[in-house]
């Protein structure tokens, strides 16, 4: 059974059809990436999974059970953590406090236990260990991404949703972030990753899907996707020109 399955998912904002009839699966232990240019509907797909937007039609199954109609709080309690675009680290809380709040979906933990777990997180994220007591708004983009990832992991998710972790980060930081994603996967967490940085996304993924204007355009292994011209077209344009020429 797939860990996550989307069946004919459609999401609209008013009249704008952001996602149309999207079906895909994520198997346990995989890293799956969803690619596509800005506005293709990638973030909307993640928001539908984590309950932030209500789909117009279709079905979302997690571990075989529907997530449709559940509030975000319930969905994260069932084991789906969402690290959203823009990191959304609470600016007025410290890095450690942000990370500790990641465990809000797990009940029965004392503050001391949570703090110990948060401190253990810093081993996976040595770059931010020194900034545990720094307030969120003082952190740099790379540090914010590390805090957001650590906070997501504190939920002990079975499925981690990552929305553009490379966004606005310098290449060396992007590398560090993706090393961590590879490590997260090695430790057994399934990852569903959205990326505009197609190279990086496919470098860690087992499989990839490509969205274009809300519809599934392509899917397959990273090698197969790179071999297809359309992935470049989806990002740099020209698909219409190419098809017209051909």
């Amino acid at each position: 059974m797939a860990l996550l399955e989307l069946r004919d998912l459609s999401v609209s904002y008013g009249e704008v059809r952001a996602v149309e009839g999207l079906s895909l699966t994520v198997e346990p232990g995989e890293v799956v990436t969803l690619l596509g240019s800005n506005g293709a509907g990638k973030s909307t797909t993640l928001k539908a999974i984590s309950g932030l937007v209500r789909p117009r039609a279709g079905q979302i199954l997690f571990e075989g059970r529907s997530l449709m109609g559940c509030r975000p709080e319930e969905i994260v309690r069932r084991g789906v953590a969402h690290v959203p675009e823009g990191r959304r680290v609470f600016p007025g809380l410290t890095a450690r406090e942000n990370i500790m709040l990641g465990a809000s979906n797990r009940s029965g933990l004392s503050k001391r236990q949570i703090r110990a777990e948060a401190d253990a997180m810093f081993e996976l994220f040595p770059d931010i260990a020194r900034f545990g007591d720094a307030l969120g708004w003082t952190l740099s983009g790379g540090q914010l991404q590390m805090v957001a990832l650590a906070r997501g992991l504190m939920a002990k998710p079975r499925l981690l949703l990552l929305d553009e972790p490379s966004l606005g980060l310098a290449p060396v930081i992007v590398q560090a972030v993706f090393r961590i994603i590879a490590e997260v996967r090695r430790r057994g967490t399934t990852v569903f990753l959205i990326e505009q940085n197609a190279r990086m996304g496919l470098s860690v993924a087992d499989r990839g899907y490509v969205l274009e204007s809300g519809r599934l355009a392509l899917s397959g292994t990273p090698e197969a996707l790179w071999a297809n011209d359309d992935i470049s077209a989806a990002y740099l344009g020209g698909s219409r020109a190419v098809s017209a020429a051909g």
Binding site: V174, Q175, R199, L202, S203, L236
Partner: peptide, 18 residues
């Protein structure tokens, strides 16, 4: 800038194809 830097070590082989 658009397709991503050729930065990932693990992905170097694939990136070359791109």
């Amino acid at each position: 800038a658009y397709l991503g830097e050729d930065a990932g070590q693990g992905g170097a082989g694939r990136a070359e194809a791109a």
